[in-house]
């Protein structure tokens, strides 16, 4: 369960940021889940909640977790074409799993549909980011 490792990173960050901000209790965190990483959001949410129970003590007891999915969009550095991960076809199960583990591996398997270049940037929807941490001081 690769999701578990990233959930640990989320909780470690929430705890650290809460300490910096002097929060006594975190009430809600908002996460953005990029499409490219192909996270199992149910597993990820379960992992975040479970780790919060173990590591968060009173700080995270009542924390709600909100997750928004973000579509992955690429832009070719050569011809400036933009396209979505969902429009990518022809990848094997092994290749999509490899991208799940390390999204940058997309450069090994995805080509610009217009000019076939592997030189593209991921404009949005790469992986997990924390959008906001709300709580009381």
């Amino acid at each position: 369960m690769h999701e578990w490792a990233l959930a640990e990173a989320v909780i470690a960050t929430v705890i650290e940021e809460s300490r910096k901000e002097g929060l006594q209790e975190v009430t809600k965190i908002k996460l953005k889940i990029g499409e490219l990483q192909q996270m199992e959001t149910e597993i990820f949410e379960f992992a975040v909640t479970e780790i919060a129970k173990v590591q968060g003590a009173s700080l995270l007891t009542n924390m709600k977790v909100e997750m928004d999915r973000e579509r992955a969009v690429f832009r070719c550095r050569v011809c400036r074409n933009e396209w979505g991960f969902g429009e990518t076809t022809g990848m094997s199960e092994e290749e999509t799993e490899a991208i799940h583990f390390a999204p940058e591996v997309a450069h090994a398997y995805i080509r610009c549909p217009s000019c076939k270049s592997p030189d593209f940037e991921v404009l949005q929807g790469r992986g997990v980011t924390i959008e906001s941490i709300k709580g009381t001081g």
């Binding site: 490792a5 990233l6 990173a9 583990f101 940058e104 591996v105 450069h107 090994a108 030189d119 992986g127």
Partner: peptide, 26 residues
């Protein structure tokens, strides 16, 4: 290489940092 196999992985700066960060984090 577990994830790229025999394929070239033409990574630029931000991609290298992101891939490294991912490997170190997981």
């Amino acid at each position: 290489v577990y994830f790229t196999g025999d394929n070239p992985s033409p990574l630029r700066g931000i991609d290298i940092s992101n891939a490294m960060l991912e490997l170190l984090a997981v």
